[in-house]
């Protein structure tokens, strides 16, 4: 991958790691919450706590918290929050691939616009 604009290798790695952790965490929570065998109320929480998905999600979020702090300390905040918007796109694509969620025309337009915006910010700083 060619270096993009002003982003150093460390910043780019933290950015990529943030995408992986955020998407991984959301998918893990989705897998935990969507388990039809889980039941209701307290039993549901016990069921989820006894399986790895919930904890995988929590783990992803804890590490992501630290990765995001490191990421933002290296670039301007206004640039950082814009670049972080790519997580929305990653999660929608992952939802489509793993859970067969629909990508309507409006969703595709939204994904394209967010991606375009992130590319503009990434290249132009």
């Amino acid at each position: 991958m060619p270096p993009t604009g002003s982003l150093s290798a460390l910043v780019a790695s933290l950015w990529l790691l943030n995408i992986v952790l955020d998407t991984g965490g959301q998918l893990a929570f989705k897998a935990a919450a969507g388990d039809p065998a889980a039941g209701d109320g307290l039993a549901r929480w016990k069921h989820m706590a006894a399986r790895p998905w919930l904890w995988l999600g929590v783990g992803c979020y804890v590490v992501e918290f630290l990765v995001w702090i490191a990421f933002l300390s290296l670039i301007p905040l206004s640039e950082g929050v814009l670049l972080g918007s790519i997580n929305i796109v990653a999660i929608m694509i992952a939802g489509r691939l793993l859970f067969g969620e629909k990508l309507t025309r409006l969703r595709v337009a939204g994904i394209a616009l967010v991606t375009l915006g992130v590319v503009i910010v990434g290249v132009g700083g």
Binding site: L82, S85, I88, M92, L106, R107, A109, G110, I111, A112, L113, V114, T115, L116, G117, V118, I120
Partner: peptide, 9 residues
């Protein structure tokens, strides 16, 4: 562009 995309979504 990002805000327009979020509104679409």
């Amino acid at each position: 562009a990002i805000i327009a995309g979020i509104v679409c979504l």
